[in-house]
Structure formats: structure tokens, C-alpha cells
Simulated scan of single mutants.
Amino acid sequence: MTLSVDEYYQMHPSTTPDMEFNTFAEAHASLTDLARLVLIADIPSSDSITGASNWNMDVYNTERANCVILVRRWKTNFEDLLCCHPDAAPPLSINMLRMMHATTSIIIAAGEFGPDTRWDEHYDGFVEIVDLAESIVAELCQSGCQSYFSVEQGYIDGAFLVATRCRDPVIRRRAIEVLRRVPRQEGIWQSAGAAAVAQRWMEVEEEGPKAPECASDVRTRVSSARTSANVDASSVRLQLYMSTRESAHPVVREEYVQWQKK
């Protein structure tokens, strides 16, 4: 589907998410709407929009700043809710929602424009996501089930964000291990496939005679990626758009990634 800028405006939500919630279910609905608002705010960078050269960056920056405020406000209200009602939901559900918030916070704070090193500023947020993901997976493993499915967002997309956008070698490997540990599907996200793609993404970025010791050592970075998955064959065609410090022009690299079904 190709959208004009006018059509994009028509898609934009006319109201902001309700930040006044009194139950866990209301908090969940509020954050879901907020995450959707954040994703729509980032649409201008998509290839699906024509007339991008006419895009008003002032509008984008205003929308982004508004989302940042709403994300922070949601966090404050959610912690107030838990303070008044500590048993509002099981710990697993609470951690899932906290992880969704942490992921949404980084996405809107980093934005869609600027050097790829902008992600390095969110180290603390990446650590928070991995800590929450490890806690969630540990609790899932205690249930004794061999596979899991959820129609809702859980920990996979957040762990994948860390595995691909955090260039700290220790933290991103923790994220990949989280994805590998439990065979799980959340909506369209499959943990095994996400782990395989993230592993290859990391390997490509870390190619060189010396393994990176910190994020600043990663000189070649994937700025964006496109995937074409064959779920039945447990494989994906991966196109990596790479930027380097030595070149102003991105390099496209194509990879084929496979993983084992569990």
C-alpha cells in the first residue's frame, strides 16, 4: 500500500490515549494505544509514504515530543496504581507491561532520524529490558510448558530491539540468549526466528580482526533491515542496509538465515 502525506494524516489518531486509569486492564489498554501512537508517529520514515521530501519535520518533532511526555506520564500513573493496588495483576503480567513501556520509551526517544550511534545513549534502557525479559522467561520456564503462544505483545520484540540496536557485546548477547531459551510466539513474532536474525545481524556488525569490547568499537552498523520470511521452512531472506564511518552511502548486504524448529 502506498500512502500520500494527506492519507497519512487521515490515519493519525484524533485523540490521545487515556492516561487516567484505575485498573490494570485500563493501564494495559492505555499503553497499547500509546505504543500504537508511537509507531504511527514514526511512519514518515517509511518507504510506503510518497512525497517524503515534502514532509514537515516540525510536525514530526512535535508529535514525537508529545509521545515522550505521554510515555513518561503513563509510567508515573502506572507506578501510582501499583502502589495503591500491589495485587492489581500477577507479577508476570506486570513485568510484561513494564517491558512494553521500556521498549516503547526507547523507540520514541531514539526516533527515526539521525546517526545510528543515537541508540548508544539508551544503554540503561536496554539493560532494563533485558533484566525484565530474563525475569519473564524464568517464570515461563517454571510453568513446565514446552511451547507458548500469545496473541499479545510480550518480551520478544523488546529483546529483539536490544539484540539489534544495543551494540554493547554483553547486553546484546544476553538478549539473544533470552530469545533462544523458550520456543514462543507472540503475534507474528517467533522467538527462534528473532534469535537467528539477531545473531546474524550481530555477527555482521562485529566482523573484523578484533571483537568489540564496547558499543563504540562497532564501526559498521545496520541502519535498517528488510525481511522476507518463509515460516514453513524456518528461514528468512534478510537485507541489511549498513552504514560505516568511512562512507556516507549505505551498503546493502543480503543474508539468508535459517533456524531449527523446537
Rank of each mutant, 00 (worst) to 15 (best):
G193L: 01
R200S: 03
T227D: 05
R200L: 06
D87C: 04
R165A: 09
C84R: 13
S243Q: 11
D131N: 06
K210P: 05
I188D: 05
P209F: 01
F21S: 01
D58K: 11
A88E: 02
T103G: 11
A198Q: 08
M57P: 04
D18H: 12
N22M: 12
R226D: 14
Y8V: 01
Y8T: 00
S147M: 12
S235L: 10
F21P: 00
W55R: 07
V197E: 00
A110Y: 13
S224W: 15
I106H: 11
G111V: 10
C214F: 04
A159W: 08
Q185V: 10
E112G: 12
P183L: 04
F21R: 05
D168F: 09
V5M: 11
P183E: 02
E121F: 04
A110F: 10
S234Y: 12
Q239E: 15
I136P: 01
M100P: 06
A138H: 03
V252E: 14
A41E: 07
E205S: 00
I94D: 11
G114R: 01
D87W: 09
C145F: 15
R167F: 07
A163P: 08
R73V: 00
D116S: 10
Y123H: 04
R118M: 04
N61D: 15
I129F: 14
M100T: 13
V257P: 02
F78M: 00
D157A: 12
E255F: 12
Y256S: 07
F160C: 07
A138Y: 04
S48A: 15
V197I: 00
A41L: 05
E246C: 07
E254V: 14
T117W: 02
P13W: 13
R118S: 02
R64W: 14
R72P: 07
A110W: 08
S150C: 13
E206N: 10
T62M: 10
A27V: 13
G114I: 03
I171K: 01
S14G: 09
A133E: 12
T244V: 03
I40K: 01
V204S: 05
P91I: 12
Q146F: 15
A88K: 05
R165H: 07
A133L: 05
M1Y: 13
G114Q: 08
P250H: 01
W259F: 08
P115K: 03
S46D: 15
L81K: 05
L31D: 00
F21E: 01
I49L: 15
V204E: 07
E152I: 03
G51Q: 09
F126W: 07
R184Q: 06
Q199S: 12
A175G: 08
G111K: 05
A102Y: 11
A195Y: 07
A52L: 10
T164N: 06
Q185M: 09
F126C: 06
A194H: 06
D33F: 10
Y241K: 08
E128S: 13
A27E: 09
W189L: 01
H249L: 10
M19Y: 01
